[in-house]
Design a protein around this nucleic acid. Sequence first.
DNA 1: GTTCTAACA
DNA 2: TGTTAGCA
Length: 120
Amino acid sequence: MRIGELSRRSGVSSRALRYYEEQRLLRPVRRPSGYREFSEDDLDSVRRIRLLLAAGLGTAMIAEILPCMVEGNEGLAAGCPELLDALGGEHDRIAASIAELESARTLLARIIATPVPTPG
DNA sequence: GTTCTAACA
DNA sequence: TGTTAGCA
């Protein structure tokens, strides 16, 4: 299928799909016309890419993970255990970010709740 | 009309 | 990432 169809079926803009190719997340073949030709599997790939992006992963990491995912599943294939370490690191980074944000929120709430001393 | 690349906002 | 220009 061409980029327009994949875009419609995936709900992802053609601009984004070209970007994913540039980031080597997708490898469509080229027709003699120069048009990209995507496979049915690419539709699943796009869904996974969106899932992984939503999980806060960068395109480089996603490029490594994608080949390790199988069929309709969103889990990792047994073949790439080394990725679990990297993902664990990502998980920890997110946890650290959450902790910082919670701290900031608590501080802000305290500042908001603290009454200004009235002169006198 | 659709897609392509490149470039700008 | 959206949009636009100029092609094929």
